[in-house]
Design a protein around this nucleic acid. Structure first.
Lengths: 253, 253
DNA sequence: AGACTTTACGTTGGGCGTAAGTATC
DNA sequence: GATACTTACGCCCAACGTAAAGTCT
């Protein structure tokens, strides 16, 4: 199997429309249709249920879409990393959200640089949740990441578990508590992405200013803060669940 | 970048000889040479230092070789998984060395099967160390693996840490000890692959019969066994280091 | 001199685009 | 009847093979 038909497949699977997919790929629809049919016959599997006015993924198509994304990301990563390795001054790129290293950056760098084969480290600052994609696409070689994140094609190593802090305005009804359960905030008990966390707090009727902090640094806002626990009962027994992980796409060889 | 030139590159990088690589690929040398040159110009990087009688990888070539293997494995995995997902009765394939699940198989299966979207599970028995490659190539979807193993492109989750047992003939000088340090066996303090472990023991001058067991099951041989610790001093403080991990190539979506 | 990579040159096949066909909504 | 996937047809470039040249050991 080649990578080009896979790119075509992903475009069609995401658009669920041959004409739009062809436009996105900068080509016309007929060769795209042919390429998909050829791919199907090569795999011996039907990827789309099509009528003239409807395109839908089969189970095999759903599976291939997930796998194809991995392949295409890996392909991009191979290209970028080879280019960086061949550049005049190759660096190891460390993906990092500002203040997102739980104070461990210096220690981790020192440990890495103790290796005589270590490369100079370039820090690449990024936003919440960007790191995994940077790693998968080869724009970074290692990163500090907060759980939960999509582990697909990544190798992560837990580094530290930090307490969660709910930062609330002083007038918030929960502001004077020592502990707050995640359920109190109207969030599910399962791990929640920080953006959800924030949205839920900021849309609260009486929330003037809100912030979430999962790093070890204390929020500098004037809001009061309470320890935040994942489940309503019993509070804090299983402990907060947001380990910072160091993540890389492969082992140093 | 396409996948075919990458396949060509891997062949040349592994053979370090265009003629042999071409033969392995079932083609003649000239188009292979051209394809590599084209790849180099597309990447803007030199991959090989070549004289007429010598081919060697550059730093960029070394990097690309590692990345290319990931890509090609992922490509194969995409193909296999799509085919399996499209088969009449799709299964989830669990890679397993016989007796290598630390007694957790039933519990893990029960937990998985509690998911209403769970597929029937097919057990694929394999040899020591085969699991990671099975996962990378899409011949399995999840596996029980013992550390240490190559985490490249895999997502592993520690399940249990088992004690290591050194099984020795009763006449072995170390046989009457309660604890044995790995250093006593002439092995490095770092994690050792079981095959190395075994080889070292079996080549010992006075070793009649030897076996290593890292699973929780007790060796049924008549040999005596001692607890085995990673570092000579202090023994057993940091504990044995062979966690069984459950491993998969990607998250269920 | 020998072994190996590379250039030269001609051929082939895979992939693309335009145009027409066909089946659904 | 309009829309959108597919088939038909013709073209072109990309990739291959053979033959020969170049180069280092």
């Amino acid at each position: 199997m080649e990578s080009r038909p896979l790119r075509y497949f992903v475009a069609v699977a995401e658009e669920l429309n041959f004409a739009r997919a062809a436009e996105r790929l900068g080509m016309s629809a007929p060769p795209l249709s042919r390429a998909i049919r050829k791919l199907e016959s090569e795999l011996g599997v039907t990827l789309f249920e099509r009528s003239t006015h409807r395109v839908a993924l089969t189970a095999a198509g759903v599976e291939l879409l997930a796998e194809a994304k991995i392949v295409l990301d890996a392909l991009q990563a191979a290209q970028r990393r080879a280019q960086r390795a061949g550049s005049p001054d190759p660096k190891l790129v460390l993906g990092l959200k500002a203040d997102g290293h739980a104070g461990m950056l210096d220690a981790v760098l020192a440990r890495y640089e103790a290796d005589p084969a270590a490369l100079p480290v370039a820090i690449r600052l990024c936003e919440w949740g960007e790191q995994p994609q940077l790693l998968r696409r080869g724009e970074a070689d290692a990163a500090f990441v907060h759980e939960p994140f999509d582990h697909t094609a990544l190798d992560a190593e837990p580094l530290i578990t930090e307490p969660r802090v709910a930062a609330l305005p002083a007038t918030h009804p929960l502001a004077d508590r020592d502990h707050v359960n995640i359920a109190d905030l109207g969030l599910p008990a399962e791990p929640v992405h920080p953006s959800e966390f924030r949205r839920n707090l900021t849309t609260g009727a009486d929330a003037h200013r809100c912030a979430t902090s999962r790093s070890c640094s204390r929020s500098s806002s004037s809001a009061s803060s309470s320890r935040c626990c994942p489940s309503p009962s019993p509070p804090c027994t299983r402990g907060p669940v947001s380990p910072t992980a160091r993540c890389r796409t492969r082992r140093p060889s």
